[in-house]
Design a protein around this nucleic acid. Structure first.
Length: 577
DNA sequence: GCCGTTTTCGGCCCGACTGTTTTCAGTCG
């Protein structure tokens, strides 16, 4: 039996939280399970392995009881509490709580009183007019249930929006509002400001000389399909392509408090407030209440909020309750910036599935201020009809050398993105790989291998002396495709041992490695490379998204190998050592 | 169920809104 993945264990803890909540457990116990689920999901190592080593309680939120539950899972393949609760609580109750206004308490009540145990039976009861007779419910609730079903509740929840698309919309709206004469300060908040992989909606905070005028201007923007006013100083809108946007206009002296509050994350804010209460300070979106004098202090700037709590300003990308509240003045990492990158070592041309020539790519790179690039077209067995034979690659070596001679101000290197076969072998001969400057090894096929075989395959590739870097190491597509099963502990260990670099692929739907794994890899001493994986000159700017992930991984310029000039980067390649 | 510069018990963020209630519990972000 293979070990359960961290994701599988986390899912079970989340399910236990849901089931205990429906069972009427105290809210803190439910929260403890959800905390534990988050902690397991983000653990940098295999939680199963940590459990066997007796180290799992080192993870925040995992105590003796949850350790026992993981042990039972490893020994028997199941957790007794899960089985017991599943037998008692119908799975449909969890789905019912997805309806707006229906939480665990009331869903449970409907089950106890009317035997409603699914979305279908809830709908039938609402249509039959039975809900209004339950004490605590009424006609309005019944109507809202029917309205929710009419609006498509119960269908698959709307997918989250990719950050690249969300920022495109959000930054456009912010720019338009800033240009309006009634506006003063306008900032994007929420998860978009934290540069998460995807976002549910957008939050914008503003101050204005004439708030109603700014709210009206927002509602009248071209991109806004519909807007409503939930309050005097707020607007809620949706774009034509279905992205929800909240705009809040506040007094200038509270702007810092609101921006901090709406930037989140919820967990960061919760942890921040808990720590503050111990100092007699109560943080809310309106200010900081000091027990000592009973006064609430308002903050114009976000820096003041953190300063009043005895903390340095924390970059939004770090606000995930991953240790950032322990930072003190002077040890906040100076996060890497896109302008720090000097090279881009993964991109495609018309030779495989790209849209530009090598020269197109080089000229664009030079415009962007890069000092060197590697052309890394797909290899011989790519399988999508655009593969590059060994002979074609040999011809490309000559062509790229000639291009590099001819072009001033940019160094053009020749590489490949070679496929890692199921045994971990690259699909060109070693003598050809040895002629190249740089080799990216990536997995593009056979995603469904079991975790042991997939990890063996990857480790074999990492141990190959001519594979310099592993490209998009988990194969995930954000909101579309889960990462393939792979033991990241072993991958990181092998990379650190062999001096193989690991890529943060910047394609906006990849960002692979993700923030958590990139942080773990870097802490283990693996050199990280941020690459665009551009398939045309216009997508070379995608490194913005890879940099965003690196920042969320707490990485500095010094942690990213391709911030070095080529003369210093070249000796770090495995082939040069 | 976790956790500790209030440490092995008694705490565990903050505020708004809603609908159903006679003063508030549940839900949501």
């Amino acid at each position: 039996m293979t070990d359960p993945s961290n994701a599988a264990i986390a899912d079970l803890f989340d399910e236990l939280g849901d089931l205990y909540e429906l069972d009427g457990a105290v809210v803190h116990r439910v929260l403890a399970y959800r905390n534990a689920a988050k902690s397991v999901r983000e653990a940098p190592r295999s939680v199963a392995a940590m459990t066997r080593e007796g180290k799992v309680t080192e993870l925040p939120g995992i105590g003796r009881t949850l350790e026992e539950k993981i042990e039972a899972l490893l020994d028997t393949g199941t957790i007794p509490a899960v089985e017991k609760l599943r037998a008692r609580i119908p799975a449909g109750l969890v789905e019912m709580t997805r309806l707006p206004g229906l939480g665990p308490k009331r869903a449970r009540k409907l089950y106890d009183e009317l035997g409603i145990d699914s979305l279908e039976s809830l709908r039938a009861a609402a249509e039959a007019g039975k809900l209004r007779d339950v004490r605590g419910f009424g006609q309005k609730f019944e109507e809202s249930v029917l309205a929710a079903f009419a609006a498509g509740a119960g269908d698959a929840p709307r997918p989250r929006v990719l950050l690249s698309k969300a920022l495109d919309i959000g930054e456009g709206i912010v720019a338009a509002l800033r240009a309006h004469p009634a506006s003063d300060r306008v900032e994007l908040a929420g998860s978009a400001r934290r540069l998460t992989d995807s976002v549910k909606d957008l939050d914008i905070i503003a101050t204005a000389s004439d708030p109603p005028a700014l709210l009206a201007a927002f509602a009248g923007l071209e991109v806004i399909e519909s807007a409503s006013s939930p309050g005097e100083n707020a607007a809620r809108g949706a774009t034509h392509n279905g992205v929800a946007i909240d705009l809040r206009v506040v007094e200038p002296d509270q702007f810092g408090n609101l921006l901090q509050h709406f930037t989140g994350s919820a967990r960061h804010n919760m942890a921040l407030r808990e720590a503050s209460v111990r100092k007699g300070l109560h943080v809310s979106e309106y200010g900081i209440l000091d027990d000592a004098d009973g006064k609430t202090r308002r903050c114009e700037r976000e820096e003041e909020v953190y300063a009043l709590l005895g903390l340095p300003w924390i970059p939004p990308e770090l606000r995930e309750d991953r240790g950032e509240l322990a930072l003190r003045d002077g040890d906040v990492p100076a996060l890497v910036e896109q302008g720090d990158l000097k090279g881009d070592l993964h991109m495609h041309t018309v030779l495989s599935d790209g849209r530009g020539t090598a020269e197109d790519m080089a000229l664009r790179a030079r415009e962007m201020g890069l000092e060197y690039i590697a052309i890394t077209d797909h290899s011989a067995s790519h399988g999508f009809g655009d593969h590059v034979s060994a002979d074609e690659l040999r011809a490309q070596i000559v062509a790229i050398r000639e291009l590099d001679e001819r072009l001033e101000g940019i160094r053009v290197l020749i590489g490949t993105e070679t496929n890692i076969g199921t045994t971990g072998r690259p699909d060109y001969d070693d003598d050809l790989l040895a002629e190249l400057d740089w080799v990216v090894g990536s997995i593009h096929t056979s995603f469904s291998m079991d975790v042991g075989s997939m990890t063996d395959r990857m480790v074999a590739a990492i141990e190959h002396p001519l594979i310099d870097v592993i490209g998009h190491p988990t194969g995930r597509k954000i909101e579309k495709r889960a990462p393939y099963a792979i033991d990241m502990d072993r991958v990181i260990e092998a990379a650190a041992r062999t001096g193989t670099m690991i890529e943060i692929n910047s394609a906006p739907d990849r960002r692979d490695l993700n923030d958590v794994n990139a942080r773990a890899a870097s802490q283990a001493g693996v050199p990280i490379v941020i690459n665009s994986d551009a398939h045309g000159p216009e997508t070379m700017v995608h490194t913005r998204w890879g940099v965003a992930t690196a920042r969320r991984a707490w990485l500095t310029k010094g942690d990213i190998a391709n911030t070095l000039p080529w003369e210093e980067f070249a000796p770090l390649r495995k082939r040069a050592r």
